[in-house]
C-alpha cells in the first residue's frame, strides 16, 4: 500500500526507469539488503558445516587432500576407547554443569530480585565472570588449582580440613570436578541475569493475591514463579546446554584433556586429532558425531519445556 502511494506522483514524468522500478520492489530490495549477511554466512557457516560432514567421510590430513572412505572414520571411532571416554566426559560435564548452573543461577536470580540497597551495583558485578575472556579467567583458575601452591589447598589446610594439598588437576576425578566447577563459575552469571529479567516481568499482584490466600513461600515459588518463568528457562537452558556441550576453551587451558584423557571433551579431542595430530578427517568425524547429540539436546530441552508452557498457557 505504501509502495503504491509512493508511485502516484511519479506517473506524469515518463522516464520512470527500470532501475527505479526495481529499486522500489520490496522483494528485490529485501534480497539486496540480505546479500552481505547471506554471502558471509553461506560462505563461512553453511558451506563449512557441509564440508565438515563431508570431511568426516574422507581421510584428509593437513597438507593432503583426502579421498572418500565411507564410514571408516566412524568405524575406527567405534572401537576407540578414548573417543567413548570423551563422549562420557562430555555428557557428564554437560549434565552436571548445567544442573548446577541452573540451580545456583536461579537462586542468585531470586536473591538479586529482592529489594536491597545497591541492587544495580550487585547486578553489574555479578555479570563480570561472563564478560571477561574465558581463556583468561581459566588461566586464573589454573593458578587457583595449582598442585603445589593452590590457594584453595592452603586455605583448607589453614582451616584444618585437609592435611595434604589437593591435586586438583592431576587426579582423574578431581580434574573432572575442577573443570566443572570452573565452568559453573563462568556460567552462573548468564543464567542468573537472564532469569532475573524473566522474574522482573512477573506481576507483583500475583504474589500479593497468593499471600492473602495464605500460601507458603514455597507454594508461591512453585505455582507462580516457576510456571511463569518456564519459557525463559527453556531458552536459557537450551543455550547453556549447547555451549557447555561444545565447550573447548576451559578444558584446553586447564588440562588439555589430561590426566590420561580423563577430561577430554569431544570438542577438545576433535581439535587434538585434527590440528596438532594432523588427521583432519578423523577430527571432523568426531565433530560430526557431536551433531546428533546437539540436536537431541536442543529438541529435548526446547520441546520438553515448551510443552509445559503450552499447558500453562491453556490455564491462563
Amino acid at each position: 500500500m505504501a509502495v503504491d502511494a509512493d508511485r502516484i506522483p511519479r506517473v506524469a514524468p515518463a522516464p520512470a526507469g527500470l532501475l527505479e522500478k526495481v529499486m522500489s520492489n520490496r522483494h528485490f530490495l529485501g534480497l539486496l539488503f540480505m546479500l552481505p549477511a547471506a554471502a558471509l554466512l553461506l560462505l563461512f557457516l553453511t558451506y563449512p558445516l557441509g564440508l565438515g560432514v563431508w570431511l568426516g567421510f574422507t581421510d584428509t590430513r593437513i597438507g593432503r587432500d583426502g579421498v572418500f572412505i565411507g564410514l571408516e572414520n566412524f568405524e575406527y571411532l567405534l572401537d576407540d576407547t578414548v573417543f567413548w571416554l570423551s563422549v562420557f566426559n562430555t555428557i557428564l560435564y554437560t549434565v552436571v554443569a548445567s544442573i548446577l548452573k541452573f540451580g545456583l543461577g536461579l537462586w542468585l536470580a531470586l536473591l538479586l530480585n529482592q529489594h536491597m540497597p545497591c541492587k544495580a551495583f550487585f547486578r553489574a558485578i555479578v555479570l563480570l565472570p561472563w564478560v571477561v575472556p574465558t581463556v583468561l579467567s581459566a588461566i586464573a583458575f589454573w593458578w587457583i588449582f595449582d598442585a603445589q601452591f593452590s590457594i584453595l589447598s592452603w586455605a583448607l589446610r589453614e582451616m584444618g580440613l585437609i592435611d595434604a594439598n589437593i591435586n586438583f588437576l592431576g587426579d582423574k576425578w578431581n580434574a573432572r570436578w575442577s573443570v566443572i566447577a570452573a565452568n559453573v563459575w563462568r556460567g552462573i552469571p548468564f543464567v542468573a541475569i537472564s532469569l532475573l529479567a524473566g522474574l522482573q516481568t512477573i506481576p507483583q499482584s500475583l504474589y500479593e493475591a497468593a499471600t492473602l490466600d495464605g500460601t507458603t513461600p514455597w507454594q508461591r515459588f512453585r505455582y507462580i514463579t516457576l510456571p511463569l518463568l518456564t519459557p525463559i528457562i527453556a531458552v536459557v537452558m537450551t543455550f547453556s546446554v549447547l555451549f557447555t556441550f561444545t565447550d573447548f576453551q576451559l578444558i584446553y587451558v586447564l588440562t588439555r584433556g589430561g590426566p590420561i584423557n580423563a577430561t577430554h571433551l569431544m570438542a577438545t579431542l576433535s581439535f587434538q586429532r585434527a590440528i596438532p595430530g594432523g588427521f583432519l578427517g578423523e577430527g571432523a568425524a568426531i565433530a560430526t558425531a557431536m551433531i546428533p547429540f546437539l540436536l537431541s539436546a536442543i529438541l529435548f530441552s526446547y520441546f520438553g519445556l515448551q510443552r509445559r508452557r503450552w499447558q500453562h498457557g491453556g490455564q491462563d
Binding site: F44, L45, P48, L49, L51, G52, F243, T246, S270, G283
Partner: peptide
C-alpha cells in the same frame, strides 16, 4: 551452530 564444529572445515577454507 557452535564454533567447535566449524573450526576444522573453516581452517581448510
Amino acid at each position: 551452530v557452535p564454533p567447535s564444529i566449524l573450526f576444522i572445515p573453516l581452517a581448510l577454507l
